[in-house]
Simulated scan of single mutants.
Amino acid sequence: MYAVIRVRGRTGIKKNIADNLNMLNLTRISHATVIPETPSYDGMLQKGKDYITWGEISEDTLKELISVRGRLPGDKRVTDEYVKENTDYDSVDALATAIFNQETTMKDAGLKPIFRLNPPRKGYEGTKKPYTEGGSLGYRSENINELIEKMI
């Protein structure tokens, strides 16, 4: 699974790239989403590479992200009681594990598909260069977990 975070804003962006980011549910800076690793999503990530950063999320980070920043419609927090009543899982951790293993999706569980995060502590490295050159954009593999920890 990939975690995708929007790093740059909305001004001066081409319409087809803006539409691509909207399809990924990344409408604002510091919004994050979790998507499966498929060829169609890989193409979407490459198209938006100048505005987003992404990498492979770990199961522990996904559990923390859902429990701390996951929201239900109406902007309510995700609780163990809600998960027990409305899904086949006993706790938020079990639900996060199922989402990580692609047994279910955020939409099927009744969760909002985005996570609204804070800007990272100590700031982004730079919002105009790729990660390989010392910036914040593009593919960052396992290092996405460190960025998410700074933003939760």
Rank of each mutant, 00 (worst) to 15 (best):
R69P: 00
R77V: 02
S67V: 02
Q46V: 13
D50V: 00
D90Y: 04
A96L: 10
G70D: 04
K47F: 02
K47P: 00
V83K: 07
G43Q: 12
T97V: 12
E81W: 00
D88W: 03
P39E: 11
D80F: 07
V78K: 15
A96Y: 00
T61D: 07
D60I: 00
L62C: 05
W54G: 02
V83W: 11
L62K: 07
L95G: 08
I99M: 14
Q46C: 07
T97K: 15
E85D: 11
K76E: 04
I35Q: 12
T53P: 10
P73S: 08
L95C: 08
T53D: 08
G48Y: 09
I99F: 03
E37G: 01
G48Q: 07
S67P: 00
L72C: 08
D75K: 14
D90I: 02
N101L: 03
R77Y: 00
P73W: 08
R69D: 09
L62T: 02
K84A: 14
M44S: 11
S67H: 05
E85T: 13
D75L: 08
R71T: 10
V83I: 15
A96P: 01
G74D: 04
L45I: 03
E59P: 01
R71H: 03
I35P: 00
S40Y: 00
T97M: 11
K84I: 07
D88Q: 11
G74C: 10
I57C: 12
D60W: 01
K47W: 00
D42T: 13
D80N: 15
L65T: 06
E64W: 03
P36Y: 05
Y89N: 01
L65Y: 05
P73H: 08
D50N: 11
E37N: 13
V92W: 03
K76G: 09
L45R: 02
D75G: 03
I52P: 05
Y82H: 11
D75F: 06
K63P: 01
Q46K: 11
R71W: 01
E59K: 14
A96R: 03
R69S: 14
Q102S: 10
T38W: 00
D90C: 09
T33A: 15
I66R: 09
D50E: 14
A94L: 02
K84Q: 13
N101M: 04
K76V: 01
E64H: 13
E56C: 07
L95R: 07
T97C: 13
S67A: 13
V68F: 07
K63C: 12
I57E: 08
D88L: 09
K63V: 12
I66D: 05
D42Q: 13
D42W: 00
K76R: 12
D60R: 08
Y51Q: 12
G43H: 06
S40C: 04
R69A: 15
D90L: 14
Y41A: 15
F100I: 00
N86I: 02
T33C: 15
G55A: 10
L65C: 07
Q46H: 06
G55Q: 05
R77L: 11
S58W: 02
Q46S: 11
V92A: 06
T79E: 13
V34M: 12
